Amino acid sequence: MGLVCALVYLLAVVNFLPFAFKRDIVEVTSGAGNKDRVLEAQHIETGRFLHRFPLEKLASYGFAYGTLASVTILGILDDSFDMRWRHKFFIPAFAALPMLALYFVDFGVTHVVVPLPFRKYVGGELIELGGLYYLYMAAIAIFCPNCINILAGVNGIEVGQSVVIASLIALNDVLYLLPTVHQPHPAADSHLFSLYLLLPFIGVSLALLKHNWFPAKVFVGDTYCYFAGMVFAVVGILGHFSKTLLLLFIPQIFNFLYSAPQLFALVPCPRHRLPRFNARTGLLEPSVATFAEEKPLRPIVGGVLKLLHKVKLLRVQVDQNGRVTETTNFTILNLWLVWRGPLREDRLTVEILTMQAMVGLLGLWVRHSLALLLFSADNRF
């Protein structure tokens, strides 16, 4: 049902555009019914004053729409043909190329502010990254869709984490639009753009979550994961707060780094790593990867796994010779079950989403309060 969710969202965005540009449309259509307005003779031949319409703002919606539609097609292909992970990993970056081109011609800022303690070493307040900044934004376009797809496997987790992240981004947007902030704020339009894209996304996601919550009646598919992740990448890049966006993805970043040994084949990775359902107890338990004696782990890898077991980041089993024969899979869902013990599926989802919300709120507090220790000012003010 992720495809239905994405299509309803795209339709909602198209129908909303006249309302987003209502004031500008009124201006270029002779007052929208203002019959008392008098046209000068020199204006009669030129028609409407389209040069007054903010086409650069409309372009952001157009390129965002094209990017989201492209990544939705990727999700459809993945759900239909079960594409290999290594084949589809980089495709979101190609879908984001028009968006990066728009960033280049419309905004083009590629410098970052240097933290106060390091300015004496780089010789200034700003450091210019040039093309590296575009590689960084392309990496965000790759990471966001794939990280939602990696943190998956139990009812409600994909949609739930997306709703939490979208709500936190919307909260950050509202902080720039409050009356306590001097208006018009230079970033107000960017954060309004973000809100305009996020609110319909939250709406369709809540509708999908109702049917995907435990016990789920529908599955979301890879289409929703790619579509949801790209919504976040679009608002972060075109809203010009991509670095703040990463603070809200800390659990996903941890999950990706934690999964890396299996994703990059340092440790054998089974086809599916979702938690295992125990039919006798009705609870979820950590799923495991096993290593046959014919294909043992390399000694150094086995030693690292034993060390992770000691610090409670894994659960491993060894034979009488000390060889690792089994380990829990490298996902945050399995790790949570290692820490908390077997849980009901809905309880696991609730606890992960609560952790996501708490870490996200902490990230926003760091961004707007603790960051003042490293930077001279918060750009909200």
Rank of each mutant, 00 (worst) to 15 (best):
E345T: 09
T331S: 13
L337R: 03
L353H: 03
L348V: 09
M358H: 03
G341F: 11
N334S: 05
I332C: 06
W339G: 09
R344Q: 14
Q356G: 00
M355V: 13
N334W: 04
R340Q: 14
M355H: 01
P342V: 08
V359C: 02
I352H: 05
W339H: 15
A357L: 15
L337W: 03
I352W: 03
I332G: 08
L353Q: 07
T349F: 03
T354Q: 04
R347I: 10
T349Y: 01
E351H: 15
E351W: 14
D346M: 00
L335R: 06
V338H: 09
R344E: 15
E345R: 13
V338R: 12
L343N: 08
W336Q: 03
L337A: 04
L348Q: 08
M355N: 02
L353W: 04
E345A: 12
L353Y: 02
L333E: 12
W339C: 11
V350I: 11
D346Y: 01
L348R: 04
G360P: 05
Q356F: 12
T331P: 05
I332F: 11
W336V: 13
R340W: 02
L337Y: 04
L343T: 05
L333Q: 14
D346G: 01
R344C: 04
M355R: 03
D346S: 10
L353D: 01
W336I: 06
R340T: 14
V359A: 07
V350H: 09
V338M: 07
R340V: 02
I332W: 02
W339R: 13
L343C: 11
W336P: 00
W336D: 06
R344W: 09
T331K: 03
T349D: 05
L337I: 07
T331G: 07
Q356L: 03
L333M: 15
T331I: 05
M358I: 13
E351S: 14
T354C: 11
N334K: 06
M355C: 12
W336N: 07
M355K: 01
T349S: 14
L337H: 06
E351A: 15
R340D: 04
E345C: 10
T354R: 03
L337K: 04
I352L: 15
D346P: 00
R340F: 06
R347V: 14
D346F: 01
T331L: 03
T349L: 08
G341E: 13
M358R: 06
Q356S: 01
I332H: 01
V359H: 01
W339T: 11
E345I: 09
I332V: 13
L333W: 05
E345F: 07
I332S: 10
R347P: 00
N334V: 06
